[in-house]
Design a protein around this nucleic acid. Sequence first.
DNA 1: AGGATGACGAACAATTTTGTTCGTTATTGC
DNA 2: GCAATAACGAACAAAATTGTTCGTCATCCT
Lengths: 119, 119
Amino acid sequence: MRKEQSTNAENIRKIIALCPLSYTQTVIGGRWKPLILDRLMHGIQRYSEIRKSIPPITERMLTMQLKELERDGLIARAEYGKVPMRVEYTLTEKGASLKTVLTAMYHWGSEFNTTLTAT
Amino acid sequence: MRKEQSTNAENIRKIIALCPLSYTQTVIGGRWKPLILDRLMHGIQRYSEIRKSIPPITERMLTMQLKELERDGLIARAEYGKVPMRVEYTLTEKGASLKTVLTAMYHWGSEFNTTLTAT
DNA sequence: AGGATGACGAACAATTTTGTTCGTTATTGC
DNA sequence: GCAATAACGAACAAAATTGTTCGTCATCCT
């Protein structure tokens, strides 16, 4: 949760007002969000499937990020069944339209990531 | 600085290995980097000019982000003159090639930022 | 002689993000 | 009758990011 009054929080508002780039960065920022959105774009929808497709993520992190993505209108949540509950997430129109951004990031990353060059 | 041994730091390595998206996100992540890169793409180069163009940034933050961008090979630093020192930053080829990514982010942001809709 | 300049670095504090551990639901399979 | 399941929530702890304050260089302007 944010401390709505901190300089930190105010700065986010200021830079979002300053440049559209910052809004995008705020919404897809964080370690896991691009990864999660990528999975959703590839048709993976169930909570448990997403989790399996991103081994190092913890349940807590996945849950939190999904909540934020939902709050920001990028994904929609749907429950099926009751107790061994089943939940599916799908991209909203807004979320799906991030595809251009993520695709560009993906291409750039595969071209310039040099951290694995130590064959 | 990173605590090279933390789970946190290990996770970064893991997700970078997992998907190119994560490398990109790691490199342009953070609050200020997209903004700084944007300024450089628009021809602003001097430290002091960048700072003026992003009012809420502090000198410390600007300095740190520039250092990281340089370390990651996105920008190059050049000093001119001695004491009222003058420094200019320019995009490297790698940095300039981020333009597609930033442009996509910019467009998406201007289309979907709803935080200012309270006219 | 004294203040302004430009681009930082250091020490510290506040805030945010990320990770760990444990518990919850009610049904199904053994 | 007992463990496993799916999708979380809560309390806490660790780590990372961001922000604050102050100090530095040597020259130029007044």
